[in-house]
Write a protein that binds this DNA or RNA. Structure first.
Length: 833
RNA sequence: GGGCGAGUGGUGGAAUGGCAGACACGAAGGACUUAAAAUCCUUUGACCUUAAACGGUUGUGUGGGUUCGACUCCCACCUCGCCCACCA
């Protein structure tokens, strides 16, 4: 009788339908089992998925299926991060409405996820561009606004004068507009911010709670928050005596200050130069520096430029008069927007002083050396001893840092402060395809939040997309014109929308009650299900998305909306899929489409290859030629099981007694148990799916050489039962990786579906113990021989055996044994002279 | 410039102080076939020795160190990738 073929297409369709039918991934909140919230970063619906994207969802699916078999109540939801610029660009280019474009892509991607056999609780699907979702994004904005965590201020945007439109950073290429190539300028607009900087310390401190996060992600976040301790020193303007605070982390260099430099944006500049002879020149410089834009101004080899304001300031510590400059390298957003210039001990200041012929004054000497300002070729930034620093001379500069700071505080000339690099989160976008900011401007009442009862502020559907002009919403009169919620007078709506990172910083809360029309999330359910047990996504989100989500979670916690301080308990960041030396992406033109592979080899093959390609936390090179290898393995597994399809039911199912097994069957039984241990350990800790799969391949290779026959007499039956046990174990162990084929073969072996309703196999502790071990014998650290000995052999006995070995004898003959090193169960090294 | 990774056969990778190259891919040879595909078997880091087997030497980016023993730990350097970047 001809054997059944491995018809993966039919099998995969069958089981995908089955899982949906039996609600395998449907999560019932009321279940009493331990919960496991498994979350993959929800995708942006940009078009279609390629095999590189697949890695993320396949890993998530493996974990979810494994935890189901381990008996957890697993929640594995999915949704769509559906607002954003590409949809709007597509509208400008192709004339499709962003909503239509987005929903078309969602449909296509949903189909792809299904065909991968990736399971989700589709009843919980959320789509961030739907009003029933963004209503609550707006609600979060209102809560932050009510609690002074959202505010507005002027901030610069990239402005293309020729398109007269605002550009996102990624639309600026080499300082020019990506569309028309004209130089981008900076323009100030009033924009909305979230006060994430208020949470800088908490976000930093609580990194220590995140035990299940990779160290490198925590380090990246800590660096991004960028806490630095320093001193605010109050310089005084000559003449007016007005205070000009400067921030420094190096108060020990205070006596070496030879100038002070302001950011071009510094508010004091205008009042200083107005009416002065250099006004025109200075304001022209400021204008130029500001239009340089951040891109150019912060470039690696940016030229340091400055201009003298004509004013002097007084160094509070010694009343020295130094010139006040403006420097394009000084940032208004960091510290106080004014820095003290110490050319002798800061490289940037050194270069600046050389360019503008400002004096250099050394105040720290390296031990045993003397620095002379005239001969210095670069700034000295190391540790040393204070000189030219009055009372502090002779002190180590590290001590002087503290001493000078204390001195300044005592005299009321400054204050020790902590500064963070983290800046407030600018959430305004001058775009259509985002959640409208729920704010109304009234001539009498000012800025008025939209009342909760009037949410959502709906995006108008009828809209024109042009490559030019301000925010498209500003042109829709019916949207802009409204009435003030307070006084009912005619008023105007805010026309900016929110950064899409706002949408994605709370979606994991919405999954818990996705259809609730009365509240954004159910506090009780949030407290039950959060934190997310396992979050899986790309390392490119290590900073922004993960920090914003942490911030929103903390803010909601402080406002008592949820009882959880940190959203994600364990984080897994998978590596990129590389093809031909570059990240797989549409723009690089190196994408591999899953459809072709699925048609030719099936989804299980693609899953297996993706998992086998390398450790998932590392980048991996995709090689199409490797795919048939994965398929070959599945085919072999198929043949092996199906070959005996008729026999499985005929043999009894009593416990196997290992001691009664013939040697070969015993070895297979032992290896099967060792494989259970190996795979379970891999899934629980290291996630090295590649070596997990390799160990199953090894097991199957050995089973192959264990010529099984369909049982006819009693002795054969015993061997056949070991074979059946091993094959069943392989199916259970492989089920999370390649679920379709395992379901089908599980059924072929005489079981009722689903394989996922079975318990994860456990290994027999006695069975994994080897009786004999092979010992490596080295002479002078070179491998010279091997012997096989019982595991429990004593060191003395082992040494005796080793010394009897012929090859050992020939190597140590005529030499003196200096020492013998014995590593139990592994190796013996004889050192001779 | 700062931070974080990574460098192992023709390729993806394995080994985290103890036999380097597991498991795959590819390649070469063979079996089956009218033929091809599929499948199965054998070989496969380099070099030396040998009729063959056995054997030997060498080998994990470079140079040093620690150790009986180093891909693995320490120091210095080179190269590549990612993230950030004039942060006072």
């Amino acid at each position: 009788m001809a054997q059944r073929e491995y018809n993966f297409t039919d099998i995969e369709t069958k089981w995908q339908g089955y899982w949906e039918g039996c609600c395998l991934f449907h999560t019932d909140d009321s279940k009493k089992k331990d919960k496991f919230y498994c979350l993959v970063m929800f995708p942006y619906p940009s078009g279609t998925l390629h095999v590189g994207h697949g890695r993320n969802y396949i890993i998530g699916d493996v974990v979810a299926r494994y935890k189901i078999m381990k008996g957890y109540n697993v929640l594995s939801p999915i949704g769509w991060d559906a607002f954003g610029l590409p949809a709007e660009n597509a509208a400008i280019k192709g004339g499709t409405h962003p909503a239509a474009w987005t929903h078309k892509n969602i449909k296509a991607m949903k189909h792809q996820l299904r065909r991968w056999g990736v399971g989700y609780d589709w009843d919980r699907e959320v789509t961030s561009c739907n009003p029933d979702y963004y209503k609550w994004t707006q609600w979060i904005f209102l809560k932050l606004y009510e609690n002074d965590l959202a505010y507005k201020k002027k901030a610069a945007v990239n402005w293309c004068p020729s398109c007269s439109t605002v550009l996102a950073n990624e639309q600026v290429v080499d300082g020019c507009c990506e569309r028309c190539d004209s130089p981008v300028r900076q323009r100030d607009l009033v924009q909305w911010f979230f006060r994430i900087s208020d949470y800088a310390q908490k976000l930093l401190d609580d990194l220590s709670l995140l035990e299940g996060w990779p160290e490198r992600v925590k380090t990246m976040q800590a660096n991004w928050i960028g806490r630095s301790e320093g001193v605010r020193i109050d310089f005084r303007l000559e003449g007016s005596g007005e205070i000009l605070p400067c921030f420094t982390t190096r108060p020990d260099t205070l006596y070496g200050v030879t100038f002070v430099s302001l950011a071009p944006e510094h508010p004091v500049i205008e009042q200083l130069v107005t009416g002065s002879p250099c006004e025109g020149e200075v304001m022209a410089f400021v204008e130029r520096a500001r239009n340089q834009g951040m891109v150019e101004r912060t470039a690696e080899d940016a030229v340091k430029e400055g201009i003298f304001t004509g004013t002097y300031v007084i160094n509070p510590v010694n009343n020295t008069k130094v010139p006040l400059w403006i420097g394009n390298y000084v940032l208004m957003e960091y510290g106080t927007g004014a820095v003290m210039g110490v050319p002798a001990h800061d490289q940037r200041d050194f270069l600046f002083s050389k360019k503008y012929h400002l004096p250099v004054k050394a105040v720290i000497q390296p031990e045993g050396e003397s620095l002379y300002a005239e001969t210095m070729k670069e700034a000295f930034t190391g540790e040393g001893v204070q000189v030219n620093s009055e009372a502090f001379n002779g002190m180590l500069n590290t001590r002087a840092m503290v001493a000078i700071a204390e001195h300044l505080e005592m005299k009321g000339l400054g204050k020790r402060t902590v500064t963070y690099r983290l800046r407030d989160w600018l959430i305004s976008r001058q775009r259509y395809w985002g959640a409208p900011i729920p704010i109304i401007y009234c001539e009498t009442c000012g800025t008025v939040p939209v009342p909760e009862s009037q949410l959502p502020v709906l995006l108008p559907e009828e809209i024109e997309f042009l490559p030019q002009g301000m925010n498209p919403l500003a042109k829709i009169d019916s949207f802009v014109n409204t009435t003030c919620p307070k006084c009912a007078a005619p008023a105007k709506r805010e026309v900016d929308t929110m950064d899409t990172f706002v949408d994605s910083s709370w979606y994991f809360l919405r999954y818990l009650s996705p259809k609730d029309n009365n509240q954004p999330f159910d506090k009780k359910k949030v407290n039950e299900w959060l934190p997310v047990d396992q979050y899986i996504g790309g390392v490119e989100h290590a900073i922004l998305h993960l920090l914003y989500s942490r911030f929103i979670t903390k803010a909601l916690y402080d406002l008592d909306f949820i009882g959880c301080k940190e959203p994600f308990h364990h984080l897994f960041t998978q590596g990129m899929i590389i093809k031909n030396g570059a990240k797989m992406s549409k723009s690089k033109g190196n994408v591999v489409s899953p459809e072709v592979l699925i048609e030719k080899y099936g989804a299980d093959t693609q899953r297996l290859y993706t998992l086998f390609i390398g450790p998932p936390q590392k980048d991996a090179e995709w090689n199409d030629r490797g795919v048939p290898g994965a398929h070959r393995f599945l085919n072999r597994l198929w043949q092996k099981v199906v070959e005996f399809e008729e026999s499985y039911a005929k043999v009894g199912r009593t416990q196997i007694d290992m001691q009664k097994l013939p040697p070969k069957a015993k070895a297979i039984y032992r290896q099967t148990n060792q494989t259970i241990k190996k795979i379970t350990d891999d899934l629980d800790t290291s996630w090295h799916f590649n070596t997990a799969i390799a160990s199953i391949m090894e097991l199957l290779n050995n089973i192959d050489s264990f010529k099984v026959v369909a049982p006819r007499n009693t002795g054969e039956e015993l061997e056949f039962r070991v074979f059946r046990y091993s094959m069943e174990t392989i199916l259970l162990l492989m089920a999370p990786f390649v679920p379709h084929i395992c379901e089908e073969l599980w059924e072929a072996m005489g079981h009722k579906p689903s394989i996922f309703h079975n318990k994860w196999p456990e290994y027999d502790k006695d069975a994994i113990q080897e009786e004999e071990v092979e010992i490596v014998i080295q002479v002078n650290s070179k491998v010279r021989s091997h012997i096989s000995v019982p595991v429990d052999i004593s060191d003395k006995k082992l040494k005796e055996c080793v010394m009897k070995d012929e090859r050992v004898i020939s190597y140590i003959e005529g030499k003196t044994v200096v020492k013998t090193i014995i590593i139990p169960k592994k190796l013996v090294n004889i050192v001779v002279k």
